[in-house]
Simulated assay, not measured.
Amino acid sequence: MSLQPVASSIAQCPLCHRPVRGTVEACPHCGAERHFGPTWRESLTCVAIGLAIGPAAIVLAGAGWRMAALAGAIGVMLGFFVAHSRHAGDRWMPPRG
């Protein structure tokens, strides 16, 4: 009598479509890696956009530089929140290089 793997423990790599264990962190076939949350680049991009848009809108509205500094701080926090809420789950990333 041979043991068969439980069907729920086998998954398919989203990049190469070969079977992999559901618990692996990297595909042994194509090298794709499971990644949780945003990458540094995604976090920095969202924070930079928040830092640029917040103060620009306040300066264009004519509210002054102090309000622009406050809007920049709020923009940074909102950018960080957006990056982490947008990429909250796990996903497969192609291998580097």
Rank of each mutant, 00 (worst) to 15 (best):
T23C: 04
A73R: 00
T23Y: 08
H84Y: 13
V20Q: 02
S43E: 13
G89V: 10
V76L: 15
P38W: 05
C30D: 12
G79C: 01
P55C: 03
H17T: 12
A57Q: 06
H87I: 00
I53N: 08
V6P: 10
A52P: 07
P5V: 02
Q4D: 13
G64D: 03
L78F: 12
H17N: 13
G75I: 00
V6Q: 15
P14V: 05
G64S: 03
A61G: 09
W40Q: 14
P55G: 00
T45R: 13
R91G: 12
T39Y: 02
A52G: 12
G62H: 05
A56R: 07
G54A: 02
C30T: 11
C16D: 04
M93F: 04
P19M: 05
G62T: 05
S9P: 04
Q4W: 09
L70Q: 13
G79F: 01
G89I: 10
A63N: 06
M67W: 12
A7I: 05
P38Q: 07
G22C: 06
R18C: 07
A56K: 06
P28S: 07
D90F: 08
H29N: 06
F80C: 10
G64F: 01
Q12F: 12
A61Y: 03
V47N: 11
R21T: 10
R66A: 12
S43K: 12
P5Y: 01
C30K: 12
P5R: 02
C46G: 04
S2F: 11
D90Y: 08
L60Y: 08
W65H: 07
A32P: 00
R96H: 14
A48L: 11
L60C: 07
R18Y: 07
M93Y: 02
R18F: 08
C13H: 07
L44H: 03
L51V: 09
R66F: 11
P14Q: 04
G50H: 00
L78N: 04
H29E: 05
W92N: 03
F81V: 15
A88C: 02
P14F: 04
S8R: 14
R21N: 15
I49K: 01
A83M: 08
W40M: 13
P19A: 13
V82W: 11
V47P: 00
W92I: 07
V24I: 11
P38H: 07
M67H: 07
V20A: 00
M93Q: 13
I74W: 06
G64Q: 01
R34K: 15
M67C: 03
F81R: 14
T39R: 07
R96M: 12
I10V: 13
A52M: 13
R21Q: 15
E25T: 12
V59Q: 06
P94C: 09
G50T: 00
C27F: 02
P14Y: 04
R41V: 05
L51N: 05
A71W: 02
A69C: 11
A61K: 06
A32K: 00
A48Q: 01
L60P: 01
P19D: 14
S9E: 15
V24F: 06
L3E: 15
G54E: 03
G22D: 14
P5S: 02
A68E: 03
C13D: 09
R96F: 08
